[in-house]
Amino acid sequence: MKTSKVILPFFAVGILMLVGCTTVNTVENAQKSGQRAMVSDQRVITDASLNRKVAIVGVNAAMTPGGLLKAQVELENRTRSLQRFLYRFEWFDANGMQVNNIISASVPEQIEGKESKFIYSVAPNPNCRDFRVKFIEAN
């Protein structure tokens, strides 16, 4: 009776730990025909907790057929549980001035445990040369 009383809480905790821990298995072609144009990035980490959970793997950029800069960021969930965050792209012209953009909403995003995910955006006009992406952890 005493043993079962001791085991039961451990069993319950174990079940609780398993719930919500779903990770992602992936498969992809090994010989890649596409080449990502990686850009060197500069990071400012103020929320180390978010950075530990959802890590920035790399940033690459390309031009669209219409001459707009397209930026893509690869993220990886280093935890085994689902993570929620908001991100926002900001764009800058050749003089480093921020480009006024009506479509600069914070986008809610979620990433499964151990999942690798890409987020991207397209510059609001052809004058944009640089970009910045902000991440904030959801409540």
Partner: peptide, 14 residues
């Protein structure tokens, strides 16, 4: 968010 996604895809498509 819906407008953001639409504009992004529309501009990207050319």
């Amino acid at each position: 968010n819906a407008a953001n996604a639409a504009v992004k895809e529309l501009l990207e498509s050319g």
